[in-house]
Design a protein around this nucleic acid. Structure first.
Lengths: 188, 188, 188, 188
DNA sequence: TATGAATGAGGGTTCATTCAT
DNA sequence: CATGAATGAACCCTCATTCAT
């Protein structure tokens, strides 16, 4: 019989429920109901609520990293920031629930999965930093000067994209992706 | 005897506790203990936990708006983005607990105080947008073209500042404010 | 208003419920219902189920020790074993629920309250040992030879009393206390 | 291939796990893991957890009864109490896990296997009573007077042995079996 | 103005049991 | 003969809230 993947069912339900009420406000009861499985099954597949959401965050950032990597392939340096920004916005738009979760949790340092999330966060910031460096060099600057662009700039870039994206999707959904992209990239 | 302001005592305790464990994880018990008052006093001074945190968020954004306003006074258009960015970073640095709370809550749409917070968020974004517009005009562009800079750009600007600031304070506290500012402003 | 002592209410209910189903089988729900208080009140008055039963056991052994002490006052050495045995049987009979609990738990070494219970167990065994020593000396033996009677003999004495008492009360309630006492004291 | 007896494997694991955490605290999961079989196998071999522990208790008391019977063979009346006491202590010492279980469960009247256990308990008490009666008669008393030694005395004797044995093994393991025996038999 | 004992709904988690394989 | 994914009732515990003082 074509067995469904129970783990994936649960992870998806966890994202959906937590997007509405936050992780603390997402009850295992409601997650189970949303997933269409018994509550006990959550604990058969994940050791705890913490472990479940660690997996949720891991998969979320992984998807984002993959989207960025895939976008950069074969793109010349000067176009890198726009193309990765577009890919990031696209990924966030397609997973807005996950985006809200990530925005809310990314700077919590008290979570059981803080370490996991930190690595994921850092890997996204590094990818964005690299895109910025590529453009910097393509604009005629030296490799050395590019090294002054650090992960902090990557974090700022990600913050700008996340801030714009959520403002867009939650409050101004009529805008086009291209327009949002322009506002992020050209104004300062 | 110099009477302390019980309300302020409680708000401060609420910020401190919630910064550690998030708002959901902040128990009224712990807030009362931290504030040094009995639990009943919380309910004497605030109608509910929601009302307490609505006040917390309101005061937080108010402080931020005031900091930005005060920074812009008498600053010519071209310098506006940098000066408001510096003021924002400074304000976030001085209230890092509040900054973490605001980052975690700003895109939650299910909170009882969502409306309050939305206005506050919007007012900050608008102030940042205006600084960007001033610089745009000061750079020789028309007022009309400046109107294409919307609140979404303000949200992106705020997201960049918040992302950089938390990355800085949580993971790279050795950097200087000026350095962080440069990374935010010059890289794209 | 003549406030009832909630703590005592809860302890009594805990003893009653645990006597029926053992400590593990005694649910906090049922204890609360039996005590006529809300479940939350259990946790307002005791930190945990473990803490509650630590208190239960402490009070139980304390009562037993007090009964033994009170019985020995002014009794000459040769009569000591019988009088303390009678007092012990009496105390167990009057608190048969507690007696069953103590019998079931006294040799568990994994409980959170094992230490507490151990001290209490030891203090009872010591009292019984002293009664045996007194009789030994009163029978004309030297103090030195009496020291060969150790706490282990006290434990054996207590085991004999508990074994006889529970056999009596659970399976042969028609016997008199004096008869049971005779069977314990004269048969070997 | 030398097939192992799965039932025995499970019973042994059940004893080991329950000795640590009590019967209520022994989970079928942990028993299965300890036995090295899948959880489903427990239910293939035993109808329920209750049935499994009924079997555990039955085998435990059976072993004890057999040890006592074997000890009394060919021993004259006056030596009977000491020899059966020694056999009992020896059996308990060799199965201390089982001894702790039996001590904790022997007076529980709510278990599904209470009936089973009661018979077993009674059969041990009867055997001990008979040893006491034999010695009584061998000491020159009439058969009739010996009949005043009832099962209650047997229960007391067993209680004394169990109490001394557990005190010995758990808290004073340096003592010799002979020493413990002396303390039980000669002090009152 | 302030207190803290009491509440009860709802939280995360465990676990004996079932059943399709 | 054996397995292990799945279940759901029941567990211990937390906590926002109330109210008599």
């Amino acid at each position: 019989m074509a067995r469904v993947n129970t783990k994936q069912l649960i992870v998806d339900a966890a994202v959906a429920v937590a997007a509405q009420h936050g992780i603390s406000g997402a009850s295992m009861d409601q997650i189970a109901e949303t997933a269409g499985v018994a509550k006990g099954s959550l604990y058969y597949n994940f050791a705890s609520k913490d472990a479940l959401f660690a997996e949720v965050m891991r998969r979320g950032f992984e998807r984002l990293s993959a989207a960025i990597d895939s976008a950069r392939e074969g793109v010349p340096g000067e176009g890198a920031p726009r193309i990765v920004a577009a890919a990031t916005l696209e990924a966030l738009r397609n997973n807005i629930d996950l985006a809200k979760l990530m925005a809310a949790e990314v700077f919590r340092t008290d979570r059981a999965w803080a370490e996991t999330m930190n690595e994921a966060r850092s890997s996204v910031a590094t990818r964005l930093r690299d895109a910025l460096r590529d453009a910097h060099v393509a604009a005629g600057n030296s490799e050395q000067s590019a090294e002054r662009i650090t992960e902090t700039a990557g974090a700022a870039f990600f913050g700008a994209l996340a801030g714009a994206c959520l403002d867009w999707l939650l409050f101004r959904p009529e805008l086009s992706l291209e327009h949002v992209l322009d506002e992020v990239l050209t104004t300062w």
